[in-house]
Design a binder for these strands. Structure first.
Length: 481
RNA sequence: AGCGGGGUAGAGGAGAGGUACCUCGGGAGGCUCAUAACCUCCAGACGCCAGUUCGAUUCUGGCCCCCGCAACCA
C-alpha cells in the first residue's frame, strides 16, 4: 500500500515565492491525508541546485556558485519548516551523492538507441548565456540585452529520442495509466504529444555548463542538461543508485506515485520524464497533479510591478496554520488565483478569527465553567467523514475546506438555537444545557480531527483544550487595525 | 499563427443540466457564551448571439473582452 508523493524541486536562483509555498502546502495536506488511512507514505521534496540559472544568479550576486546555492537552498528548507511541511526527505541535487550516482546510473540505463550525439546550432546570447529561439527575439535581438549581437554557436550534445515514445506516451496518458489532474492539463499534454514530439538535448558542453552540475560519465566534455538531472531526483532520492529497500518499496512497488507540480512544467513531467523512465525500463509515476499560479492584482507577481507577496510575510503576519488555510481554501487547486493583502486579511478575519477561533472560545468557555470534568471522547467523535478525505484525495483542497467551515457554522447555529449559556443559569434547564455544551465540545473534537491534515497545529490545540476542558488562548489573534 | 485558462450579485471567489453557494459590503431584527464575535431575514448576479435539450448559467458553435504559455522556461 506504499505511496510516494513529491513536490517539484525548485531552482534556487532566488528566494522562494508564494507559488512554492502553495505547492508545498498542497502536497503536505495531501500527504497528511494519505497518512490518515495508511502511514506508509514517503513525501519527498528538495531543491534543484544544478540549473544554469543558478550559476547565472550566483555570478550576478558575485558569489561562488556552491555557496550561493547552499544559501538559497536553505531559504527553501526554512520556508518548508515554517509552513509545517511534513516531508520525509529533502534532496539537494548538487550535494547529495546519492543523486549524482543515481543520475549516472539512470543515464547508463537508457536504451542505447535512444541516446545519440548531434550538433546543435542556435543563436546564443552572451548576456543571458543561453540559446534563444527565433520567437524570443525582438527585432533580432535578445530583449534582455538589446544592442548585443547574438552569436551563432554550434555545439555537440547528447540527444534523447523522445520521438520514439510518442505513441506510447499518448496511450499512457489517454488511458489514465498516468493520471494527469486536472483534465485540462491532461488535454494539454495530449495535444502536445499529438503535435509531434521532437528529441531534446540531455547534455550541454562543459564550457556552457561552466563546470556546474553533473558530468556525463565517460565524456568529460559534457554535463547533463538540467531536466535530465532534475527529474531524476524522484528516484535518486529514494536510493535508485543502489536499489535500496526504500526505492523498491515506494517506487518499484509503490501503489501510488504522485508528483505535484506547477503548470509551467507540465510537459517535463507528463512527457519527458515518463519517456526517460520507459527508456530505462523503470516504473512510471501513477499521477501528476498540476496546480495553477498565484497572481496579485490581476498580474503575475513581479519585482518590477511591486506586487510580490512573500510567503514569509504571510507567515509573519498570520502564522503557519492561517497561511496554510489561505493557500488551501482561497487559492484554487488547479486554476490561477488572485490574491491581495486586503483579501487575505478579510479571509483571515472572517473565517479564522470570527469563525474557528471564536467558536472554540465560546464553547470552551462554557465547558470550562460548567462541565465538572472533561468530555470523554469516543472514536466516533473524531472519526473523519469520508466525503472530506475524498475531496482531499482528489486534490480538491478548497472544497474540503468548505466542508470544515460548514461544520463551524453548524456549531454557531446550534449555540444560538439551544442557548445553553442561558439555560445553564436556571436549575430546571441546567441538565439540558450541560448536555448541549457537551455536544458542542464533541463538535469541536470533530472539527479538530478534520483540521489535522490541513491545519495540524490548530487541530492539536483544539484537541488539547477539549481533553483538558479549558478555554485555550485565542487561536487566531485579531489583526491590528 | 498556435496552445491553455477565464468572463457568476457593489467587490472577490466557489459551483454545477433542473431550488445558484461562500466571504466582504448595504438594509432590518435577535442574542450576550464568545476574539465588538454569533444567529435570522431582506435587496442584489451567471459577457453577447445562436444551437442541442422537456429544461442551460452549466453542453456545442460563433463573437467580444481579460490573463498565461508559445518546446529545452515554477
Amino acid at each position: 500500500m506504499a505511496r510516494f508523493i513529491s513536490t517539484s524541486i525548485p531552482y534556487v536562483n532566488a528566494k522562494p515565492h508564494l507559488g512554492h509555498a502553495l505547492e508545498f502546502v498542497q502536497t503536505d495536506a495531501y500527504a497528511r491525508t494519505a497518512r490518515l488511512s495508511d502511514p506508509d507514505v514517503f513525501f519527498l521534496t528538495g531543491t534543484d541546485d544544478n540549473a544554469l540559472k543558478n550559476v547565472q544568479a550566483a555570478e550576478a550576486a558575485g558569489k561562488p556558485v556552491d555557496e550561493y546555492v547552499d544559501e538559497h537552498a536553505e531559504h527553501f528548507k526554512e520556508l518548508e519548516k515554517r509552513l509545517g511541511i511534513s516531508y520525509d526527505d529533502f534532496i539537494r541535487t548538487s550535494t547529495d551523492e546519492r543523486h549524482r550516482r543515481g543520475v549516472e546510473k539512470f543515464w547508463r540505463a537508457m536504451k542505447a538507441e535512444d541516446i545519440y550525439k548531434k550538433s546543435y546550432r542556435g543563436l546564443y546570447c552572451v548576456g543571458c548565456e543561453e540559446f534563444k529561439t527565433e520567437k524570443e527575439l525582438v527585432n533580432g535581438e535578445c530583449p534582455e540585452h538589446p544592442g548585443k549581437k547574438l552569436e551563432e554557436i554550434e555545439e555537440e550534445n547528447y540527444f534523447f529520442r523522445l520521438s520514439a515514445y510518442q505513441k506510447e506516451l499518448e496511450e499512457l496518458i489517454a488511458s489514465d495509466t498516468i493520471r494527469v489532474i486536472p483534465e485540462s492539463r491532461k488535454n494539454e499534454a495530449l495535444s502536445f504529444i499529438r503535435g509531434g514530439l521532437q528529441d531534446f538535448s540531455v547534455s550541454r558542453s562543459s564550457v556552457r555548463a561552466k563546470g556546474w552540475g553533473i558530468p556525463v560519465p565517460d565524456d568529460s566534455d559534457q554535463y547533463f542538461y538540467v531536466w535530465f538531472d532534475a527529474l531524476g531526483n524522484y528516484i535518486t532520492a529514494l536510493g535508485y543508485a543502489e536499489e535500496s529497500d526504500i526505492y523498491q518499496k515506494y517506487w518499484v512497488n509503490g501503489k501510488e506515485k504522485t508528483h505535484a507540480i506547477g503548470k509551467g512544467i507540465n510537459r517535463f513531467h507528463t512527457v519527458y520524464w515518463p519517456a526517460m523512465l520507459l527508456s530505462a525500463g523503470l516504473p512510471l509515476p501513477t499521477s501528476v497533479f498540476i496546480h495553477g499560479y498565484i497572481t496579485s492584482e490581476g498580474q503575475k507577481m513581479s519585482k518590477s510591478i511591486g506586487n510580490v507577496i512573500d510567503p514569509n510575510d504571510l507567515l509573519e503576519k498570520y502564522g503557519t496554520d492561517a497561511t496554510r488555510y489561505l493557500l488551501l481554501r482561497h487559492v484554487h487547486p488547479t486554476e490561477d488565483s488572485d490574491v491581495t493583502w486586503e483579501r487575505l486579511d478579510e479571509w483571515y478575519t472572517a473565517n479564522l478569527v470570527n469563525g474557528i477561533g471564536n467558536l472554540v472560545a465560546r464553547v470552551m468557555k462554557l465547558a470550562e465553567e460548567h462541565l465538572p470534568s472533561p468530555v470523554a471522547l469516543t472514536e466516533a467523535d473524531t472519526a473523519i467523514e469520508s466525503v472530506f478525505t475524498e475531496k482531499l484525495d482528489a486534490f480538491k483542497f478548497n472544497e474540503a475546506m468548505d466542508l470544515i467551515f460548514e461544520h463551524v457554522g453548524k456549531g454557531d447555529e446550534y449555540m444560538t438555537e439551544k442557548e445553553p449559556y442561558k439555560k445553564v443559569k436556571a436549575e430546571e434547564t441546567k441538565a439540558e444545557a450541560l448536555a448541549d455544551i457537551e455536544k458542542l465540545v464533541r463538535h469541536l473534537a470533530k472539527l479538530a480531527a478534520h483540521l489535522r491534515p490541513v491545519m495540524p497545529a490548530t487541530a492539536e490545540v483544539i484537541l488539547a483544550a477539549v481533553t483538558e476542558n479549558r478555554k485555550p488562548e485565542n487561536l487566531f489573534p485579531r489583526l491590528d487595525k
